[in-house]
């Protein structure tokens, strides 16, 4: 299965948007996604999972929740983050640790995570 992001213009992320029930919904989806994919090796199966796709669909308002989850629990959030933000601050990363660090620095700089 090809894994290529769509090209084209993307809107810049906006922090601080509020959707009622977003946090609860995010945690339900993230927990179910983890539970159903954590024993899988397939990257494709993880990112095409319906819960992961729904989280991408939550868009920019979900970014603080995704970044907090990434910081606290790790996980394969990078595809979702690039889909939502249109950015990839980890293009030079060669390890998972470097990739995570680059994204968390990005999140702090953009105001999605506290200092």
């Amino acid at each position: 299965m090809p894994l290529e992001l769509p090209s084209g213009d993307r809107q810049a992320p906006v922090a601080g948007q509020f959707i009622p029930g977003l946090e609860k919904l995010f945690h339900e989806l993230a927990n179910q996604w983890r539970k159903e994919t954590r024993i899988l090796s397939s990257i494709q199966a993880k990112i095409y999972h319906r819960c992961y796709q729904r989280i991408i669909g939550l868009g920019t308002p979900a970014l603080p929740l995704i970044f907090t989850d990434l910081r606290d629990n790790g996980g394969l959030w990078y595809w979702a983050l690039e889909c939502i933000t249109g950015d990839n601050p980890a293009t030079n990363a060669t390890t998972l640790d470097e990739q995570k660090r680059a994204w968390l620095e990005y999140a702090t700089a953009k105001g999605y995570l506290g200092e």
Partner: peptide
């Protein structure tokens, strides 16, 4: 390293 057939470039550590 995490061995899996994904496109090169986006997935460091794979």
């Amino acid at each position: 390293m995490y061995w899996w057939p994904v496109p090169p470039g986006f997935w460091p550590g794979k």
